[in-house]
């Protein structure tokens, strides 16, 4: 076999990851739903760490108000679908990743089909009721979800497995009125989005490798004005 200038791509992953673990990541498939503040960071980190198959989904296009925090947004990409920008970014970072993208909003009618072949699904959504729908689909597909959510400089991350109550423990019973959270009043700050995306990426890798402590029935809460970082038990 010939050598490529990119053969050393994962050199600095070792020995935090073993070659076997790197190979396992390369064979893993992750679906990222929502490509805004959280999803952009998650795509970037999963592509760099070497997750081999990424499916990137968002129906939205970039607006000027995304520039304050969304890694994938750039001035010249205003109006461009986020999924397209995400695919291009991943391809530019790591050509070894098999990346697919879809410009689509997901709901009950198509969620299951989109996630059923994944090893992990990343919830980077901005709607609480879609999060509940995703949980139903992931339960049916028997796939874990890594969920992140942000408001202002506050963030939370949890990993939800098919047998868990999941979002009900965080948002209460599902209700139609509960589409958005307090982020509609606080906005979202870049470093909080990136921080939560980083924790989500870490959770994803741990689940794929079955390694480390996973936020299963636990919620990591971070509040950056006060440097509050706490893992709380949901059950």
């Amino acid at each position: 076999m010939g050598t490529s200038p990119l053969d050393g791509r994962y050199a600095r992953n070792f020995n935090t990851l073993t070659p076997e673990e790197q190979k396992k990541l390369g064979a893993s498939k992750v679906v990222v739903i929502g490509l805004g503040g959280l999803g952009g960071g998650v795509c970037e980190m999963l592509a760099r760490v070497g997750v081999g198959h990424l499916s990137l989904i968002d129906g939205d296009s970039f607006e000027v108000s995304n520039l304050n925090r969304q890694l994938l947004s750039q001035e010249h990409l205003i109006g461009v679908p986020k999924a397209e920008a995400a695919k291009n970014r991943v391809a530019a970072i790591n050509s070894e990743v098999n990346v697919t993208h879809q410009v689509a909003y997901l709901d009950e009618s198509n969620l299951y089909e989109q996630i059923k072949d994944a090893d992990v699904v990343m919830d980077c959504l901005d709607s609480i009721d879609t999060r509940f729908k995703l949980q139903d689909a992931a339960k049916k597909a028997v796939i874990p979800i890594v969920s992140g959510a942000i408001a202002g400089v506050t963030g939370q991350v949890t990993s939800i497995f098919p047998e868990d109550l999941g979002y009900e423990l965080i948002y209460g019973k599902k209700s139609r009125e509960q589409s958005k959270g307090v982020e509609t009043r606080t906005g979202n700050i870049a470093y909080c989005a990136m921080f939560v995306a980083a924790i989500q990426s870490s959770e994803c890798v741990k689940i794929l490798l079955n390694r480390g402590d996973i936020l299963h029935n636990k919620l990591l809460i971070a509040e950056l004005w006060t440097n509050t970082f706490e893992v709380v038990a949901l059950t």
């Binding site: 959280l38 408001a151 959270g181 307090v182 982020e183 809460i221 709380v232």
Partner: peptide, 10 residues
């Protein structure tokens, strides 16, 4: 004691 509102942004 910690009290939290719904946080749902992405």
């Amino acid at each position: 004691l910690g009290l939290f509102p719904p946080v749902g942004g992405g």
